[in-house]
Design a protein around this nucleic acid. Structure first.
Length: 478
RNA sequence: GGCCUCAUGGUCAAGCGGUUAAGACGCCGCCCUCUCAAGGCGGAAUCACGAGUUCGAUUCUCGUUGGGGCUACCA
């Protein structure tokens, strides 16, 4: 049994989108599960769509997400080069060989002539016109420097059949496949040719890619067969959708991996979530590290139907990762985000972080959770009313002076001590501690809901500020 | 249009002829609680439709409908 080798072959046309990343992930998981190799190959044969810097984005995204390849342009390997534009001469060589084998032919037809072949539906289908050229005619045109493309010679009859490991038996009649271009007039191969040559030359055993290639795979098999090469095993993947009718795509400006990282999603949660889109481990486990995903991965768990990307669920997963993080990890990841808060720098940062750790799912939510500390000011005194806590404006009016007195006497300004003191005070005043604490919290925050209780916040803002705010609120009632 | 393909709650999904049709997110309620979260418990909500096959179909077959893909000198 040959060593398993899979590859991820993106085009450098922009950022690496979520669907592409998942394809990479499955290729990685499948190979790693079996101790195989995972290869990165850059498919830059379309010079028009090339976007500067996108190759670097691909490298960075894969490294950052942990989907690391064993071979690739920037790490080397025995099957290079791993960038298709650097393999240009190779494709021409194999195209000529395929012509000799009868699997392809030179075509000198002008784009205009090809366009004139439109049928009643408006579809263009090449008529194999140049297949009839004699060897001499071809040589003459070549010698004369006429521009040409090389087309695949697809049989007019017969059926191409193969077994996809996810979708099962796939059969397409050759009459429904046209003689596609293998080598463009600029000498560059198309995907349709380059993927076959490279997958074979690079020893790829399992081709894992998007479902858009499901029905065109028979024409690739025709080439493998013509060359006398073993066909790889195919594993096509269902699409990831933005909604029921639109694929998640960069064309729509849909979020990419790096966008989600910038938004403050825990990185592991992004990889974890996309693994679950279209695959499940059959044991109800959802939170899994890359290692656990690798151990659990199997083709049986891959779904055939499209799945809609649900950012809300990914957020939940991110929150799970945050909750399980130790404080130091949380702190280092949260730092860039907490700096965006108005409260940052004015209070003990560790205490702020503790306040927020179980209250956010993504890091970017941090500022909005603690900004309230800096937003104290006039408020509607009806906030003191809370039937459930047995609190009212009147009660607030009568009890705030007591709170001020009590707190003024406290020297050990710690949460626990503050809490104990206020609880004692409530007992002395014979009111529910919930009522007193509610009043205290409203009086020092002016907010109906806050991240943190009355005494936690009091500790944070300090004695002077606490007393000041209590007096302010008392005046507001009067 | 032709060809390929998909179809279980709002979303991700388990199921692979007989089940009270799992689980998760979200939503709702209750408990806990120093408000909000977190945590605990519970609830509402699904087999697209129509024919077959079968003693019995969510499950198998065919069709319909709907979605996606391919049909480029894009991948």
């Amino acid at each position: 049994m040959n060593k398993v080798r899979t590859r991820f072959a993106p085009s450098p046309t922009g950022y690496l989108h979520i669907g592409g990343l998942r394809t990479a992930l499955y290729g990685y998981l499948f190979a790693k599960k079996q101790g195989g190799d995972f290869v990165l190959r850059i498919e830059d044969t379309d010079t028009n769509r090339y976007v500067d810097g996108s190759v670097q984005i691909i490298y960075d995204t894969m490294r950052d997400s942990g989907i690391m390849y064993d071979e690739g342009p920037d790490v080397g390997g025995n099957y290079g080069p791993y960038i298709q534009s650097e393999r240009k001469a190779l494709y021409m060589e194999y195209a000529k060989k395929l012509i000799e084998l009868g699997g392809a032919y030179y075509c000198f037809c002008s784009p205009e002539r090809v366009a004139s072949l439109k049928d009643e539906e408006g579809n263009v289908r090449y008529d194999k016109h140049c297949l009839n050229l004699s060897k001499e005619e071809i040589q003459a045109k070549l010698d004369a420097g006429e521009p040409f493309v090389i087309r695949q010679n697809v049989p007019l009859t017969g059926t191409g059949t193969y077994t996809d490991l996810v979708y099962g038996e796939i059969a397409v009649d050759y009459k429904d496949i046209e003689d596609g271009i293998l080598i463009k007039s600029d000498g560059m191969p198309t995907y349709n040719f380059a993927n076959v040559i490279d997958d074979h030359l690079m020893g790829i055993t399992h081709v894992i890619r998007g479902i858009e290639y499901l029905s065109s795979t028979p024409k690739y098999n025709l080439m493998y067969d013509a060359f006398g090469w073993d066909r790889p095993t195919y594993i096509h993947l269902p699409p990831i959708m933005k909604d029921s009718q639109h694929k998640l795509s960069k064309r729509n400006g849909d979020a990419s991996y790096e966008d989600f990282v910038k938004k403050g999603f825990v990185k592991e949660s992004i990889v974890n979530y996309i693994a679950l889109l279209g695959w499940n481990p059959k044991n109800n486990t959802e939170k899994m590290s890359l290692k656990e995903l690798t151990d659990n991965f199997s083709l049986e768990g891959i779904n055939k139907s499209p799945s809609i990307f649900d950012e809300t669920k990914m957020k939940w997963l991110s929150g799970e990762y945050i909750k399980e993080m130790n404080f130091d990890s949380f702190k280092s990841l949260a730092m860039p985000f907490i700096k965006e808060s108005k409260a940052f720098g004015k209070y003990d940062t560790d205490k702020l972080l503790n306040l927020v750790k179980n209250r956010v799912q993504i890091f970017s939510e941090i500022p909005s959770k603690i900004d309230f500390l800096e937003e104290f000011g006039e408020f509607d005194v009806n906030l003191f009313v809370n039937d459930k806590q047995k609190s009212s404006v009147e009660l607030a009016k009568s009890v705030i002076p007591n709170i001020i007195d009590e707190l003024s006497k406290i020297n050990d300004w710690s949460n626990q001590n503050l809490f104990d003191s206020l609880v004692n005070l409530s007992a002395k005043l014979e009111i529910k501690k919930q009522a007193l604490l509610w009043i205290a919290r409203i009086a020092i925050t002016a907010k109906e809901a806050t991240a943190g209780g009355a005494t936690e916040i009091a500790e944070l803002i300090g004695k002077d500020e606490t007393i000041k705010r209590l007096n302010f609120s008392l005046n507001l009632i009067k």
